[in-house]
Amino acid sequence: MIEITAELIKDFLNDIDIKLVSTHNRLSLPVIKRIYKKMKYGIKFDEIKICDHLVIDGHHRYLSSLLAQIEIGTIKTLKTSATKEYKWDEVEFDENDWDTNHKIQYLNEKDAAYNELDVEIVNRIISE
């Protein structure tokens, strides 16, 4: 499994043709790393929400799916008047974890239930 870094992501994004555009200018690197690990181990996720060519909800999942080379589903939604587009090379990758330990455990439990797995399996995946 590759080590996900901000530099690796930026290089990766420069090398591929990305179909969807970001509506966030910052993403959390630790969140991307956790989702990437889960995807590489076969954990399935909910669809991301898009409007036309824009990611509205699911930026971390979308980027993780590209890195893991895993298809993720999409569902259509609406954008608001406040929605802004950002080129992927404008997106900053924050080294800080945006999730608390409590939220990480909650998400692991949710992912385990969605995939019909014991939560300890999901906990082990992200700790590797």
Rank of each mutant, 00 (worst) to 15 (best):
L66W: 11
K87S: 15
N96F: 01
D99H: 00
S65F: 05
D89E: 06
D99G: 00
L78P: 02
E92Q: 10
F93I: 05
G73Q: 13
E95W: 00
K87M: 14
T83V: 08
D99W: 05
T74A: 05
Y86L: 02
W88D: 01
E95L: 03
E71P: 02
S81M: 14
L63T: 09
Q69T: 12
V91A: 06
L66P: 10
K87A: 14
E90S: 10
W98T: 10
L67A: 04
T100D: 00
L66G: 12
E95S: 06
S65C: 05
L67D: 02
T77C: 06
R61E: 04
Q69C: 06
H60I: 07
K87E: 15
L63A: 08
E90G: 04
F93A: 04
K87C: 13
S81C: 11
K76I: 15
D97K: 03
I70A: 01
I70R: 10
Q69W: 06
L63W: 09
G58H: 14
Y62L: 10
E95Y: 05
Y86Q: 05
I72W: 07
E92V: 08
D89R: 04
I72C: 02
N96K: 08
T83W: 04
I70G: 02
K79T: 14
D94A: 04
T83L: 01
